[in-house]
Amino acid sequence: MGLIRAVFDAAFRQGGPRLKPVGPRWPLLLFHVDTGGCGGCGMELEALATGPYDMEGAGFGFVQSPRSADVLLVTGTLTRTMAPVLEAAWQAMPKPKGVICVGGCAMDGGYFPENYSVLGGLDRKAKIDLQIPGCPPSPQQVLDGLCSLFGQRVPPARGAQAEGSSSTSS
């Protein structure tokens, strides 16, 4: 436990703004990591990304590499086996960068709190920019949560420039 905490402290000790300025950095690019949940949150993220929700129009996209990501989007409780993987993904991301937890597991462990194989959620282990509760949250709830980062409720039409500053809520 001590070891992993140390890893976390080093990984998440970041100064400065948590998210990149919205204007020039629009859209916000997310790198998803399932750190050991049941996969339900991942299924809802897939529904969000590929179903009839205009996620990209709202200014969000998933990327395949942490190197091109602005935000680490975590689902699932954090297993001890996944912790170094998450850490590596975080290290690979350019600054400034942020963390979003989707689902109860990623927030505080949910139904899978700490045990021999699990560290629990990221709550109190890392600075989290946004938490979207639920087990799992629906795609609309995830999208609403993401939009709250931009201080907006309704997804703007495709191509519209999002206004407002990056906010950190939890």
């Binding site: 790198f31 998803h32 990591v33 399932d34 750190t35 050991g36 996969g39 991942g42 299924m43 993220l45 897939e46 990304a49 998933f62 990327v63 395949q64 590499s65 942490p66 699932g76 996944m82 993987v85 998450l86 993904a89």
Partner: peptide
């Protein structure tokens, strides 16, 4: 894997 950026389980 286990982190590809996709939505599959790790």
């Amino acid at each position: 894997g286990p982190a590809t950026g996709g939505m599959e389980t790790p």
